[in-house]
Design a protein around this nucleic acid. Structure first.
Lengths: 241, 241, 241, 241
DNA sequence: TATGAATGAGACTTCATTCAT
DNA sequence: CATGAATGAAGTCTCATTCAT
């Protein structure tokens, strides 16, 4: 299914940017059709429409024919800009991941600035991260599905995810002194994975919920903060006999 | 998209019902065993191969053509036994779910018999449930993917899941007295969902792991037990200011 | 689903009457299961069910699989008795055509006995023939459809039809003296074909009505009698200038 | 059975609609003719071959595979232009019906212009209508067969037929004064249906001829004129006792 | 470059017919 | 003879990709 030629996700579009194009129909009045602009516009339309379709459909229902129709960009043009379906999807992922990284960075920075103690930071992180996931729920779900069959998408997703989680963990570790667990790094990492897993499951990222949705979002967030604090601040003796 | 047709395992039983009447006990001990045997064998081959392919591939790459080739059962035969692709998948789900239910029941019963205190029960439950998920990892992943597009599969999976989780929760609630949380039912339910979500994510159920696999399985299980006990046995005051 | 056993008022079942049947569960002492009888019964069931299905469906939806299911006769048995689908259909045609011939003969004989003048005979013939067609409408429609692709069925149908029509014409020609047309044979033949064509069209024999059904059956019959009499009894001069 | 989808000739017009905006009158006289030409040619080939196959075969033997082969247009292209088999057939019907309507209108107009008395008009109408049916015999037979299973085709055919017949009746009713029947409208309507039924039957429209073909076409036409005139101009007393 | 018609492999499904039991 | 599981050719339809204009 995959063309398996893992292009190297970058240069393709970059190389197009500086090139100077000429209007095709230079015979009509206004010779200087700003081709580059039109081109950019249609590329933008293409990526936006494609991303939208991706979030709305199962991947197996995501067809270039529909992308072409919805974005008003011809099939031929799509193939001029991308090597094929896989390539298009990878470029979309790039774009979305970059967007998410900025979003995430801004949010983490805001939290850091507040210098909160762990008891307040943890709920803030949980809520912030939850909102983040919720905001990108659609595209994340789609990308995770694609990652099943496209190793490049899987890799990119993995890297982005690791980095993103790492940022949150660093933030939490700024309260290292409050943590009672013997190995704060490990504890924070574990706790954050717990949060990530629960939220993902609740949001149906990476497929359907098999049993959830019955709960309440806000309650879940509070519970997650709670359980995290219990773990990070708890007395280890409690669970010993 | 779906053929919308509750399975009902028609073909399966049809082959057993003699279409012409015939004295029920017509003297000969062995009814027409040979035919049924051959038939049964190929049905077995079919279901086994199909289940195997299902766990190995994306659902959109799961084709009857390949099932036919691998199982050495002709396309026509598949359609003699099942109403179509959807029906085949649903029958496979039935078979697997029944198998899991038995497995699960046995395990829970063994745990219950030991009458453990929560401090020991929790790790036992986590390990037991984790082994369970790990054992059925392949088919669960496949079924979850299918559930996205097949409401019948989704329903069946949901019901099975809810019931399964409920059994574990009931077991944990037999230690209700040890739990310090004000609402033990809620607490146990939350904790179990936490465990479920984490394990699912680690095992890549419901899609790929985007960030995991780096951890260690046993460590994860211990951590999950730990965090659960911290929450269930912890002092609520710890997390207040 | 359909037990459909409509004995079939004919020799087939008659032959059963004198035969001595055995209680099915007679301890199977008596080896002599009247095989012929069982065989005949299932053949009867087969033909009846098949004829019924034929009248209810488009020919392309008429499958041996369904015939087998509905008649409770195995596919294998069907192939033991008939060379294939075509042969089955031809045998059904034979059976139905014979039935129709008898029906038709009886009716014509009744009409002949009454020795009516043309003015009364014509309406009687029209009504009689119309009822006849209406009675066999279903099977006739099916057979006409099949005749498109099966020359044997077409031939048989043609022969039967010609003979049937011929009988009616002979009946009408017994009033030859009243007919004012120069060539009574031709006139009667033409008139009868007119009637046949109109009735067939109304009944949707040989496909759909494209425009009819708006009229009223009884009115049509009266009109047909009328027009026929006008033609047969009319003054040829009327239509000359 | 049917795809249930009103045609709407989507694909046909789609190809004409430029997907990218472009000044409507961009200066160049000839829009992109060459492409459209090639496209048009293959569409023409497609429709012509398909219509031909339709008239030559039973509908159940009319396969897109063969259409593709005969017209030298790939299966995919057929699906680019039509929604499916049903849609293709409906488009063919549209095309043919429009052609017939024009043909019919011209002929009726010519007849009307001559201002003939009924004695001459009737034969002219019969001959004209007969020629019309004969000319479109093939496609009409095919469409009638399809109408059995495709309600859209049935509707379209019905509407066209009703309108066509109505035009002939209006023409005949311009000689209303000559008709001796008490209700000229009814009489003309009946007579025309008689003619239609007889001709259809003779031509094997709506299935095979079961008994005909033996007659002579010209004789049939004369007879139909005759019988019609006898009815329309006859003395009602003749058929009373 | 842009366009979109054309292509064809391949998926699902049906059903007449064969054949081992 | 009866049985019905098994077969596979053939049909409809989809969609990534190519290519002439």
């Amino acid at each position: 299914m995959l063309n398996s030629d893992i292009p190297g996700r970058k240069s393709l579009t970059d190389s197009k940017r500086p090139s100077m194009r000429q209007t095709k129909k230079s015979g009509d009045r206004f010779a200087k059709e700003p081709k580059q602009t039109r081109s950019r516009e249609s590329l933008e339309r293409l990526l936006t429409s494609a991303a939208k379709l991706l979030t709305e459909k199962k991947y197996s229902d995501f067809t270039l024919q529909e992308v072409s129709k919805v974005s008003n960009v011809s099939i031929g043009s799509i193939y001029n800009r991308f090597k094929g379906k896989d390539d298009l999807v990878r470029q979309i992922q790039q774009r979305e991941v970059e967007r998410m990284d900025i979003d995430s960075a801004v949010m983490i920075n805001n939290l850091r600035r507040q210098q909160l103690p762990l008891r307040q930071l943890m709920p803030a992180v949980v809520h912030g991260f939850a909102e983040f996931l919720r905001k990108y729920r659609g595209i994340l779900r789609a990308l995770m599905e694609i990652a099943i069959v496209d190793e490049v998408v899987a890799d990119t997703g993995r890297k982005h995810s690791v980095q993103n989680i790492g940022d949150y963990e660093k933030l939490l570790l700024e309260c290292r002194d409050e943590i009672t667990q013997p190995n704060p790094e490990r504890a924070v990492n574990f706790v954050f994975r717990l949060v990530y897993a629960s939220l993902s499951r609740y949001l149906g990222l990476g497929t359907v919920d098999e049993s959830l949705e019955e709960g309440d979002w806000e309650t879940l967030l509070d519970d997650l903060s709670d359980v995290s604090l219990h773990y990070l601040l708890g007395n280890p003796d409690q669970i010993r006999e």
